[in-house]
Amino acid sequence: MENKRSRPRPKADVDADAAREAADEAQRQLASRLRLRHLNCFVAIAQERTLARAAARLHLSQPAVSKTLVELEQWAGARLVERGRNGAALTVQGERFLRYALDATRAVEASALALARQDAHAAPALRLGALPTVATALLPEALLRFKALRPQMGVKIHTDSNAELLRAVKAGELDLMVGRMAEPAMLQGVSFEYLYTESLLVVVRAGHPLANDSGAPSLGAVLGFPLVIAGERTAPRHHTEAFFETHGFAVPEGAIETQSASVARLIVAGSDAVWIVPQRVAQSDIDAEVLVQIDVPAPQGVEPIGILRRSTATLDEAIGVLAQQLRECAQAA
């Protein structure tokens, strides 16, 4: 029987195999070079946002931190951190690398704790971020429920702007946050779980001249009183300004701008000021008849609020319990 000669493989297949082998070899070499110090350095830069603060945190010189970062960028073949006068900001490639660097460094920390045989019950406090408006509207009841279920677990609450809280979640500084949905580009590596949609109300103190008006006051009449609104570069402020523009008005000069619900509440309760506020922030005061909603059309259903956390992070049991309490309180309200 005549032996059949093996047919030569197509050149495209040979080239593809060679490219895969080269990529695998490059990955093996990079894995052999990468050390925990590289990961710790990169995480410190991402969290501290300047090379100087990262160096101080790691007890290293700034040139040493810079050299380590340059090594990482050379191996990656891309810039991971943009350096400038305002500090160090991660690039898209840097944010992608950070997700895995955080998981690796935390795994090492957990392993060290296991070797040290530390008490498994001595768990660190949960780190929760929330917008100022959400913090007053949703957190109190949710945290009371959580503490009833996990009395020994501490919770550290951090309030800030949505963008800053989102940055902290990505950097692993927060376990989860309750905030607004951001642009898709800002949500890379972050999951969003919808809780509720936020609407705005116009409220005044009980006994206010506008509250005693038998008819619905005009927006012009409302703007005849001192105004309390959210600060600039916030979603409630953006929707307030858009609402005014739709009706031919602008934000009046002399308005009081604040992100503090407690400050705004005291000002409105003790004066004739008018407050444009997210509904859930004012609802308890409206129910108690301390504040009164004015029948002026205001932006409705303008902002989806939800739970945001790192997509690759393992959901700790205690964090899952807290998230469930947030869901239940959002639904109940």
Results as ranks from 00 to 15, higher is better:
L98P: 00
V296E: 06
L291T: 01
L128F: 08
A46V: 06
Q325I: 03
S61I: 00
V296R: 06
D17E: 15
R5P: 04
V321Q: 07
A122V: 09
T312K: 12
A185P: 00
V43H: 02
G207L: 01
E198A: 10
E73Q: 13
A330V: 09
M181W: 10
A135Q: 14
A264H: 06
R99D: 13
A333H: 13
A64S: 14
A261P: 01
A44L: 07
V178G: 02
L200M: 14
E183L: 13
L102P: 00
Q118G: 07
Y196A: 07
A242R: 12
L131D: 02
V70A: 15
A56T: 09
A211E: 10
S271V: 05
H121P: 00
Q293G: 12
L90G: 03
V292M: 08
P140S: 11
G129H: 05
M153Q: 15
E289T: 12
N3D: 12
A288N: 10
M181P: 00
A46W: 02
A255K: 02
A135H: 10
L80V: 06
V290S: 07
L176P: 02
V155F: 06
A221Q: 13
S260H: 09
I294D: 02
L143E: 03
E183V: 09
R35S: 14
I307T: 05
E21F: 08
P252K: 06
R5V: 11
L90W: 03
L115Q: 11
L308R: 05
E164R: 13
V274F: 05
G94V: 03
L115F: 06
Q118A: 07
F243T: 05
V108D: 08
P184N: 07
A148M: 09
R85N: 03
D295T: 09
F97L: 15
A18G: 00
A230V: 04
A44Q: 01
P124T: 08
H121Y: 09
L165M: 09
G87P: 02
L90P: 00
R20T: 11
V277M: 05
T234D: 05
L98R: 01
E253R: 11
L144G: 15
Q93G: 05
F225V: 02
A264G: 06
L326I: 12
D160A: 15
L60H: 05
V263L: 14
Y194P: 03
S191P: 00
T68R: 08
L223K: 00
R280C: 01
A323H: 04
A298C: 12
S111C: 03
L30E: 13
Q331R: 15
V202R: 01
V222N: 04
I45L: 07
L308P: 00
L34N: 03
V92N: 11
M153L: 15
T136W: 03
I307G: 03
E173F: 00
Q188D: 14
T159I: 14
V228R: 03
A230M: 06
E183W: 11
A120I: 10
D213T: 11
G179V: 06
E48A: 13
T50V: 10
A114V: 10
L60F: 07
R106D: 12
D24R: 12
P278H: 08
T314Q: 15
Q300P: 01
A273Q: 09
G94W: 02
G220F: 05
G215T: 13
V292E: 09
V203P: 02
S311L: 14
P278F: 02
E25Q: 15
A76C: 11
S6I: 09
F244I: 05
D213S: 11
P304G: 09
L200D: 02
